[in-house]
Simulated scan of single mutants.
Amino acid sequence: MEQHTFPEAAHDNAAAFWLARARALGLHAVRTAGWTAVHGGSDGLDAHRVVVTRPYSDPEGLLAELAGLFREWGTGRVCLEDPYGGLDLALYGGEGALAQAVMVREPAPLGPGSGVGPAARPGTGRGSGVEVREAVDGDGLAVAERVVVEGFPLPARLPWRRGGLLPGALLGEPGWRAWVARRDGAPAGACVSYDDGSVVGLYWVATLPDHRSRGVARAVVEAVLAAHPGRPATLTATLLGEPLYRRLGFTERALSRWWRYPASGPAVPTAADR
């Protein structure tokens, strides 16, 4: 694969992102030529995560392979991203969500007034000042974590507990960064980015309810893009977030089908903004 061939580069970034979190939490993970799986942990709050990274010719065989792994792990819940659309977890009692756009933005200027450095981005969201800064220590990371948990939201992580989603060890993972947007001085939005040396992926772009429709999500995304000016950027967009990303220069390169198991479990969280 060429360095910037999409959508495979986007899938590789997602797999590497989850592997970095697994290392920080000491979780078991398996990476093969066609998929990556990360154990959900012993607390039961996270599902086992699977990212399919390459096309497959035998969907039934792939499902059987993954089912064997989950039996070994003692499956409670599973979240599987299938960007090739050929898997059917309903055969195993799973439930599919609507397909979501895997989007990519090639390196390009952000436009007038958007050329900012990686540390801060003064926003102009509908009359309210928005500033974005990178979380560089444990306290900053905790703020980013709380905003993601409460703003995305991640129901399984409510009420928020420090370090459960974003452990402090992530600050030592190369390429891994967290960002916090403040509006009039108060935490308003956040996201996580992961630069794998080829592309930069954006994850958990979140805005707290009281600060929505004020340019917070845009400010966060622009800060990440400005901090990685030579990198293509990628994310998986919800229907609500997709219009913003298109305005910022992202284009759809694939549709990813998300599956959850069991079907009666809580809604599967997605990778990008709401």
Rank of each mutant, 00 (worst) to 15 (best):
E2I: 02
H4T: 14
H11Q: 08
A14R: 14
F17G: 09
A22H: 12
R23Y: 00
R23C: 08
A24N: 10
R31H: 08
A33K: 07
G34F: 01
A37D: 05
S42R: 14
G44R: 02
L45A: 14
A47R: 13
R49L: 02
R54T: 01
P55H: 00
D58N: 07
D58Q: 04
E60A: 15
L63V: 08
A64L: 06
A64D: 15
E95L: 13
S114A: 15
G115H: 10
G115P: 05
P118R: 08
P118A: 11
P118V: 03
G123I: 08
T124E: 13
G127M: 02
S128L: 11
V132E: 04
E134W: 01
V136S: 04
E145T: 14
E150V: 08
L154T: 10
R157F: 15
L158S: 06
R162N: 15
E173R: 10
P174D: 05
R177G: 01
A186M: 08
A190N: 03
G201Y: 01
L202S: 02
R214K: 11
A217E: 04
P229L: 00
R231A: 07
A233N: 03
L240V: 15
L240I: 10
L244S: 08
R247N: 07
A254I: 11
A272V: 10
A272S: 14
